[in-house]
């Protein structure tokens, strides 16, 4: 077990280093000069040069790379030229917003895709199954940005039900930051109205992510359920006189969990990539928006940091899922063996 964890952690670390190296060089390949951007249009050549020196951009590429990697080893993600703060400080501010959106979307995605899968698997090939397939396919077929803007158009502009974007009403005071999750912090502060406000702000971005991933998630869960339905232990359960609901929830579900979990892990990877786009659409102050804005002015460090952080998130999720398998299926003795 310990050996397995160690192996996976080393492996994860290697992946992170590879991602850092690749994104570092990719960002440097872009033929643009961040110093010129920062200095502004009317800046003199001296000013630009000064900024270049200040941020080490005048150094040869290998030296820049070495400096960056050494800093990385010490946990220093570099400095943002745009915000003039260290990237780590920025991340501390923006990461909770992204995590909150991700977690809420993920839970919602699991609940919705699974419920739809249960409905569809009741009668494969039936009308309900077909309708669910069609609707989820449409949801996935719609481009994310268009879906997000359409939702904004209806729920904000037409119906006035939900806010256009951001995490919290700009005119109201947000609850004191404790966890960084507004839903949690507002409850900790005992403010139901703040909780409701954060929930309203979360709804459209989360819905956009969920709708986009729903087709794949529902189909994978549906397939797992249908496959489990044909297993012999289901016949045994029927032979014991159990009701269809009991068979579904007590027998099939538990067995279908492993394949669903595997699929879900992959989906979580997609979710991380969609969150960047969704944050931009909904002006959600998370790391996606942060990296996007940084990239617009060729501020590299935040972009590389985003790649590293999201990869780390994916590595961690995979590890957690691997540790969960033996809990879900007793036949999986230990993931290490």
């Amino acid at each position: 077990m310990i050996a397995f964890l160690f192996k996976r952690l080393v492996w994860g670390l290697l992946v992170l280093i590879a991602v850092a190296v690749i994104t570092f060089f990719l960002s440097r390949v872009v033929p643009a000069d961040p110093a010129a951007f920062l200095a502004g249009q009317n800046a003199s050549e001296e000013t630009v040069q000064r900024i270049r020196v200040e941020h080490g951009l005048d150094r040869p590429l290998p030296e820049q790379f070495a400096t960056y990697m050494i800093g990385l080893a010490e946990g220093d993600l570099g400095e943002s030229i745009r915000t003039r703060r260290s990237v780590s400080t920025d991340l501390k501010q923006y990461l909770p917003a992204t995590l909150e959106l991700l977690i809420v979307s993920f839970v919602l995605y699991l609940a919705v895709s699974f419920s739809l899968a249960v409905l569809a698997a009741r009668r494969p090939g039936g009308a309900v199954d077909g309708a669910i397939r069609l609707i989820t396919m449409i949801g996935t077929g719609i481009p994310v940005f268009w879906l997000g803007m359409t939702l904004q158009f209806f729920f904000f502009y037409k119906l006035h039900w939900l806010p256009l974007g951001a995490r919290f009403p700009i005119r109201e005071t947000a609850p004191p930051v404790i966890s960084g999750f507004l839903l949690v912090d507002s409850l900790l502060a005992g403010s139901l109205s703040a909780f409701r406000a954060s929930l309203k702000h979360l709804t459209l971005p989360a819905a956009t992510i969920v709708v986009n991933l729903l087709a794949v998630g529902t189909r994978l869960s549906r397939a797992a359920l249908i496959q489990e339905q044909s297993r012999l232990y289901v016949r045994t359960a029927r032979g014991k006189g159990l009701s269809p609901n009991r068979i579904l929830f007590k027998h099939i579900l538990r067995n279908a969990l492993s394949p669903i979990l595997t699929a879900t892990t992959m989906q979580f990877g997609y979710m991380i990539s969609w969150v960047i786009l969704v944050e931009v659409i909904f002006d959600w102050p998370g790391i996606g928006l942060y990296a996007y804005q940084s990239f617009q002015v060729f501020d590299y460090s935040p972009v590389i940091a985003l790649a590293i952080v999201s990869t780390a998130g994916f590595v961690i999720i995979n590890l957690v899922m691997d540790l969960l398998y033996p809990v879900i299926d007793p036949r999986v003795q230990s993931v290490g063996s």
Binding site: L232, T236, R254, R331
Partner: peptide, 11 residues
């Protein structure tokens, strides 16, 4: 039934 291993719920 015939096959007790697969006829019992594995989990």
């Amino acid at each position: 039934y015939q096959d007790p291993l697969s006829s019992l719920n594995p989990v």
